[in-house]
Structure formats: C-alpha cells, structure tokens
Design a binder for these strands. Structure first.
Length: 875
RNA sequence: GGGCGCAUAGCUCAGUUGGUUAGAGCGUCUGGUUUACACCCAGAAGGUCAUAGGUUCGACUCCUAUUGCGCCCACCA
C-alpha cells in the first residue's frame, strides 16, 4: 500500500485506461434492448486542424451524459465523426498552397489535383482530431465513426437531393446572393461582417419626386419609384408613369406602392435596383419586375447602361454620376453625416456586392411533406416540432429565438461556388437537365457547384445510421435522445437537421416521432478568456490549449473545469487557476481512496445496521441524498450543479468529517461502500481517476460499465443527520470561540466530553479526546459531569456537551426564533386555506396539490422544531 | 430598429417552482506537518444580492421601470 504515490499522476493512467475501455467493448452499445436506447451523435468537428476549447467543452458534457446513461444500463450509442467543412477546409488548404507559391490553386492545379491536395490534408487532420478526442476520455463508438464526405454519406446526400428535386422542393433560380468581386465567389450570410461607415447620402430630383440614395452608381437603369401606399404626399401619383430626365437622357419611370417603405426615411420615396440590393430584389419579385444586372462580376459598370461610366469601378462611377447629375441640376442636397453598415466578406475583407445569379434553392414554403395528416411545408414542420414539444430546447428561452428565425426564413441557397464539397448531382446537355448521382452518358456535363456544407451535415443524425437503407441501427437508435451543441449554430445546423431529418425519414415511411432528428437539444455556451473576450488565434496569449492543460493537470481536471460553473446557453470564462483547482480535487479523491484502501485490509463485510455508529448513519444518509440529487440534476442537464454536489460531498463531508472521525472509530464496510458509491457518482465527470482507483479495488466489472447507484432505503436515518448537524455546529462554535481568542483555553469553555457507557467500542478514551480536540482545534484538559442547558452532539460514539450560555446570546436568539415562528404560522394558515379550497383541489394538477401538501408538512415540522428549540431556551 | 441574456465577496461563478443566519473555488491574512493528501488541515477578513418602486407574513428569487455590459437577428434605399 505504501507504494501508491501520494499524488495522482494522470499521465500514468489515461492512455492505458482508455485502451482498456476501448478493448473491452464498453464504448459500443450493448446488443440487447432491455432498456430504451440512448443515442447521442457527436457534432462532427471540422477536419481542419486541432481540438480547441469549444470541442473540449462539447466532448466533456457529452461524455458525462453518455457515461451516465451507460451506467444506468441503457444501450448507449455515442457516434463520433468529422465534418469536411467545405469552405473552411478549402480556404485553409488554399492558404497553405499560396504559401508554397500557388496563387490560384483551382486554375493552376486543376480541379482534380486541387481536390487531392485537400483530401490529403483532411486525412491528416482527421487522425489528429481523433487522437485528441480520445485524450479527452470520450467514450464514443469508434467502430461506427463517420465522415460527412464519405461515399456512404455522399450517397445519402445525392438521394435526398434527388427526392427533394422530384418533390419540387429543390429548384434552380435566379436569386440575389452576396458576391465577392475580388475572390469571385458567393459568400453566405453568416460569413458577412458588417462595418460601420460614414458616407454621403445624396438627394436627387427624379421626375415628380426627390429620392435619397447612398449608391447613385447603381441607378442608371432605375425605372421604378416606390412609395408607401398610405403616404399622403404621393397618393396622386401611385400607379402613374412619367418621363423623367435622368443621368444620360430621358427614361420612363413608373410609381408603385409597397408597405416595406418607411415614409420617415429620406423623402419617403425611392427608386429600386433589384439586381444589387436584397430589399429591392424582394420587392421586384413581389411586383414581378425585371432585375437587370448593372454591375458585372468584376465590380464594374456594364457598358450597355452607361456610355460615360461603362467599365468604371464602383467607386469612380459614384463620383462621376453625382457630377453628371449635379451638372444637370438634379442634385438637391448631400447629407455628409450619413452612417450605415456595409457588408464585407470576412475572408479578404472585400466589399460584397449583391448580385443576381443562378443558384440552387430549397423551397421552405411549399407544402409537400406528409406531416400529421396534412401536407406541410418545411417551415410548418420546423414550427410544429418545437411547438408540439416533440423537440425540446434547453434552455427553453431559445424557443423564442428559434421561432423568430423561422418567421424570417427565406428559401435556403444550397449551392456554393467552391470545389471542396458534395458536387451537385445535376447534369446538363443541350438545355436538358437530369438529376442523378452518376453521369447519364457522354456529353452530359455536371453542375460545377458544390453543396452548402450544412446541407450534408443536416443529415448527420440519420445518414450515420445507414439511411437511405432501412438498417437495424436506424430502427434502434433514431431519433437521437439528445443533441448537444453550442448555441451559436442553432440555426446553421440544428434547424437544418430538423429540416433534413423530418423530410427524409417521413419520405422513407417512418412515423413523425421517428422522423425528428432528436428529442432534446442541449445548447452550451461559448468559452471565453478571463476577461470575457473570445479566445482568438490572432491573440495567442488569450488562448488556452486544452491539450496543454491535459498534459499539465490531467484530463479529469480539464473536464471538470469546463463543466462546473457553466450553465446551458451562457458563456463561461476559463482560466488556468480554475483547472488547477480541480486538479487538486482529483488528487483529493486519489488520497481519500488511498486512506480507505490502507484501512480496508480485507475487513469489509456486509454493512449491518446494528453495528452502525451515529457518524456511519449520518454519512450513509447523506450519501443517499447525494445519490438522489446527483441523479436528479443529471436528468435535468444540470451538470454543473451535479458536479458541485458530489464535489462538496466527497471533499467537505466524506474526507473532512467522516474520514477524520473514522480515525477514532471506523467501520471498514461503510468506508468502502461510501467510497465505491462516490466513485460511481463521480465517474461520468472524472472517468480516469475514478477508474484508476476502481482497478485497485479488485472489482470484477470495470467502473465504466458498473451500475449507477440507487438510493438504499434501508440506510435512511434522518435523526443521524440532525445529530451530525449538531456536531458540526458544536465543533464550529468551539473553533470560532477559540479563534476569536476570547476564550484562550478550555478553562472557560466548559466543554465536557465523555465516552458512552459501552466502552467496549472505544478502548482508548484518551486517544479519542485527543482526536476530538484536534478536530475542534481545542486543547482539552478537562472532562467532567453533564450540564443541563447544553448543545449536545456525537462524534462517533462520543458525545459532546457545550453549555449554551457560552455560545449564544439567549435573548436575541429567542427573539429571532419567535419572529420566525410567527411568520411560519401565517404561512401555514395560508397553505391550509389553499388546501381546504375545493376549487383548488379540483382544478389544479395533482402534482401541484401534492407539492403544496409536502410544503405544508415541511412547514409543520419546521414549526415543531422551532418550538422545541424555544422550549429548550426557556428552561 | 426588434429580440435575448447578464449584473451576487477583490476575481471567476453557483443559488430549480419565494422560506431559518446568501454559498463555493481562487486570491489575501492568521495558525498548523495530524495513521491519506501542503495539489493538505483549521480559521479570519470581505456582500445594501446593479438602482428605484411594487406584490407578499416573508423577495437574491416574482412583477414594473431605470442604468451598465454582452450577444443574436434585421438592416437604413
């Protein structure tokens, strides 16, 4: 025993234990479905690099849930994987190639060679991520590992694309997109960065109205004036046509009305440029107007619209147009202090120009999904699954954000002009279109574009189980029990998964309940540095690398530091000292266990009630309470609280009190039982240290698959808890008096300690007193007779009496208790009144009534206690 | 502009349906090598629970308003 080191060196155990678990098959779901299956799909990390704190948090939380469910005996599937992360990966590789001198990889290498470069890079990244995932202790089923760009998932992507196309959900159409004229690619909304800019705002005379604009260079072909339908100033011109003097001669303009116009803004009238503004484009669609392209894809004015400005860059054209209009006397005024946001591509920071382009879209409004006996649209289904409670968001407040997002949802643009990704399974020949994965024959040319990465990762929950095949896994493990992810991708990913899963699974004939991707969605917060700032690669000093921390403090400490102090949906700050603190706890567990192990020496037997001392009864009762509340917290995704409960129990109660007392009298069976049960409770949080200790306990089953503890009703001794509370109170009072130095020695505190009658249990009374003195930080020199008015308590089987008068200001105490009794009395009457109200009993749910009864009982007991206390005081 | 969140000890944070004297870790200070642990033990200082009202016998907790910080969405023609 003495050979066990006094500190837990995590590195000595982690890899070995992980291999042991993995080899035992514990990570795979057991084969028999005696209980409901538990499924959690790991959100696949991008195959672009290394594990960061976001991943680490995700893995820590997920592994806690999974280990807990596994110990409860559910067949548990935790499926890992990686994401090909279209744009992100491609740009990483592009950057690497550029460093090597390849400026434009696609043109210089060709599509195939470029793809190969990316594939090679991804292979390396994937294995890096996998290794790092294992370091976190993640107990996922590697035999089912998936990749969003594997052949199988590509098949699933093509299948759903084809299905949606045939259902008319996917269509090709001219739509306005964000175009980066510098990088020559579309940019998705979430890759935009808005920068505030002070610009000039011009007012021009335009026929019968004055229009305001910050972008005169787009106005060459504007022929439509829009005003608000209720705007009194313009009532008489709505619907009329005018000949208007404009930039380069006269044009015909028409006035239309639309509610989207803000009468307060500018002059309340504007002209529209549908091809280069999102709002204008939508407006044009509504009114079935044309959308001519004024600015080409290089960011120049197209010559056919302007003789003078054709070929000019936007910036130059703007000045030129203003000058021309000014010379014609059409410039009314210029507002120099106009502030607005301009959109930049966050990669490259080029100003994004809205352009109309042919893209592939998913229609979110077309009612073609069979959902609860009617044809529903994607929007309808998205709304229904959360509204009906089939899918629950944790924390609940995200419901509101989610619904708001659906209300504003536009058709989903799924095509991207990049190389790395699922190629759109569409083929063209002489104006003909075919949608299928493989080439229909010679002369057919495949669409150059690839699919939005979320289109494919939206299939994650069911394609990984074998869809479109009807597999046993799909039967057993769909839908996922929980999805755990960061709230920042609620829309990008969570919503897409709901779209894809409900559509595809219904299409394959599964029920609505089976078709949802998951039941609960747990959204964790972002990890920030100690100042609350985002950790960013550009400021390495703010970054904490989880792998460095694992090296330094061990995985268990890192996991705890990511989970404790974190609540769903809220960001959390992390700093090294916090991790160090939990390393200390891990070490405390190790040493607590060492002590128990040293004292066992084969002496443990069945626990017999008649042999239990008061402190045994107390710790067993407390343990029951801890089992109950930890289980309860875990069931409600309150990981932080669950962790804290077990932390406080193990350190503050088991080690600080029970273990100390067992140096006086010990019950090996109880020591061992409490230790083992605690290890089980702590295992989901700290798998390594707990399993490492478990191994030296010579159990036949590994801890990872041992049974989750249950409350043992035999070992509930409510009075023991009260007595122990009193011990602690007494001891603390002694310590307090002592530390205040008001009472320098035992002389003034008539502290009387004596052993109980059955001295057989305690042989060496002097030793006990020494121990107790130690516990109380008190020199005890005197033992003696009982005192009447005293607080009494037991430590082990030793009773301590403390004269009350020394401890308390009697009068103040009495007043306090009396006040409380008074308040309780009122409370009781109000409760009784409520419970005797027939309408309440009838109408309120049974559970609420029951709770009220419990409250009443609690209050009655409290009152009783207070009365006893006050009686004692009055004696 | 619309929405959401946060505000509790010097710092980082808990505090689930309102109920004894508001907690923890870190940091600071004091004292301690005791059949595991100095990555330890014991103790202390430190709080008007952002502010102002309201509901209640009772509010950190519920309601209203205000202030400060953070985030998301929309986007200003």
């Amino acid at each position: 025993m003495t050979s066990i080191p006094t500190t837990f060196n995590a590195a000595d155990f982690e890899d070995r234990l992980y291999a042991l678990w993995s080899k035992s098959g514990a990570f795979q779901p057991k084969d028999h479905d005696d209980k409901e299956a538990f499924t959690l799909m790991m959100p696949p990390p991008n195959a672009t690099g290394t594990l960061h704190l976001g991943h680490a948090t995700m893995l820590a939380i997920e592994d806690i849930i999974v280990r807990y469910k596994r110990m409860q005996g559910h067949p548990t599937l935790y499926l890992p994987g990686t994401d090909h992360a279209a744009i992100a990966t491609q740009s990483v590789v592009e950057k690497k190639l550029q460093e090597k001198g390849v400026k434009n990889p696609l043109e210089e290498l060709g599509r195939e060679a470029f793809l190969k470069e990316i594939r090679d890079f991804v292979e390396v990244s994937k294995s890096t991520i996998k290794k790092q995932t294992k370091k976190m202790g993640t107990s996922c089923d590697w035999s089912r590992e998936c990749y969003t760009f594997s052949d199988e998932l590509n098949h699933a992507v093509n299948t759903i694309f084809q299905m949606m196309y045939e259902d008319g959900l996917i269509y090709r159409g001219g739509r306005i997109v964000n175009w980066d004229p510098k990088m020559k690619t579309t940019v998705s909304d979430d890759e935009l960065e808005y920068v505030e800019e002070k610009a000039k705002f011009y007012y021009f005379k335009y026929g019968p109205v004055v229009i305001g604009t910050a972008r005169p260079e787009t106005k060459f072909a504007d022929k439509i004036i829009v005003v608000h339908p209720d705007d009194k100033r313009y009532q008489n011109i709505i619907g009329k046509e005018f000949e208007v003097e404009w930039i380069e001669g006269k044009i015909n303009a028409r006035v239309i009305a639309d509610e989207c116009i803000d009468p307060e803004m500018g002059t309340g009238a504007m002209t529209i440029t549908p091809a280069h503004s999102f709002v204008d484009f939508e407006l044009a669609q509504r009114h079935k107007l044309e959308a001519p392209q004024i600015i080409d894809f290089d960011g120049r004015i197209k010559p056919e619209f302007s003789k003078a400005c054709g070929g000019m860059q936007i910036k130059d054209a703007r000045e030129a147009v203003v000058k021309m209009l000014d010379e014609k006397g059409l410039l009314v005024k210029v507002d120099e202090n106009y502030v607005h946001n301009i959109a930049l591509n966050y990669r490259g920071k080029a100003v994004v120009e809205p352009q109309v382009m042919d893209q592939w879209f998913v229609d979110v409004n077309k009612p073609v999904i069979n959902w609860k006996d009617k044809k529903s649209s994607i929007k309808d289904v998205l709304q229904d699954v959360v509204l009906s409670g089939m899918i629950r968001l944790v924390p609940e407040r995200f419901n509101k954000v989610y619904f708001h997002w659906i209300d504003n949802l536009r058709d989903w643009c799924i095509s991207r002009q990049i190389v790395w990704g699922h190629r759109i399974p569409v083929w063209y020949k002489d104006g003909e279109i075919k949608v299928q994965p493989k080439s229909p024959g010679k002369d057919w040319v495949q669409d150059e574009d690839t699919l939005d990465t979320w289109f494919s990762s939206g299939l994650w929950t069911f394609s990984t189980l074998g869809w479109p095949n009807k597999t046993r896994d799909l039967e057993r493990f769909a839908p996922s029990t929980v999805l755990e992810t960061g709230y920042d991708i609620l829309f990008f990913w969570v919503a897409r998964m709901i779209i894809q899963s409900t559509y595809a699974m219904r299409k394959s004939g599964y029920s609505e309940e089976k078709s949802i991707p998951f039941k609960d969605v747990y959204l964790h917060g972002l990890i920030r540095d100690i100042h609350g700032k985002k950790m960013s690669k550009s400021r390495p000093e703010t970054c904490i690398d989880p792998l460095d921390m694992i090296k330094k403090y061990g995985t268990d400490a890192v996991r705890l530091s990511l989970v404790i102090g974190s609540t769903p949906g809220n960001d959390m700050r992390l700093y090294e000292e916090k991790i160090a603190g939990f390393r200390n706890f891990v070490n405390k567990i190790w040493n607590g266990a060492r002590f128990v192990l040293m004292n066992l020496e084969g002496k443990e037997r069945e626990i017999k009630v008649e042999e239990l001392t008061r402190s045994d009864k107390w710790i067993l009762t407390r343990l029951n309470e801890v089992i109950e509340s930890v289980t309860n917290k875990l069931d409600n995704y309150a990981f932080s609280e669950a962790g804290l409960i077990i932390y406080d129990f193990f350190w503050g109660e088991f080690c600080d009190w029970y273990v100390e007392m067992s140096k006086v009298t010990k019950n090996e069976s109880v020591l061992s039982y409490v230790l083992k049960t605690s290890l089980k409770l702590m295992h989901p949080f700290m798998p390594f240290v707990t399993e490492a200790i478990w191994v030296s306990l010579n159990e036949d089953k590994m801890l990872i698959i041992s049974e989750w503890p249950k409350v043992n009703p035999k070992w509930n001794f409510p009075s023991a808890s009260d007595e122990m509370d009193r011990v602690m109170q007494v001891v603390r009072e002694i310590r307090k008096l002592r530390s205040e130095s008001k009472v320098p020695a035992a002389k003034k505190i008539h502290c009387i300690i004596y052993a109980h009658e059955d001295k057989d249990l305690i042989n060496d009374k002097a030793e006990i007193i020494k121990r107790l003195a130690n516990l109380c930080a008190l020199d005890i020199s005197k033992t003696g007779e009982r005192v009447n008015k005293a607080l009494s308590a037991f430590v082990g089987d030793v009773e301590i009496y403390l004269p009350l008068a020394e401890l308390l200001d009697m009068e103040a105490e009495k007043a306090r208790i009396e006040k409380e009794i008074d308040s309780l009395q009122t409370y009781l009457t109000s409760l009784e009144k409520k419970l005797s109200n027939e309408a309440f009993i009838k109408n309120a749910p049974a559970s609420v009534v029951e709770k009220e009864r419990v409250k009443l009982k609690d209050a009655e007991q409290k009152l009783l206690k207070l009365r006893v206390q006050i009686d004692e005081l009055c004696k």
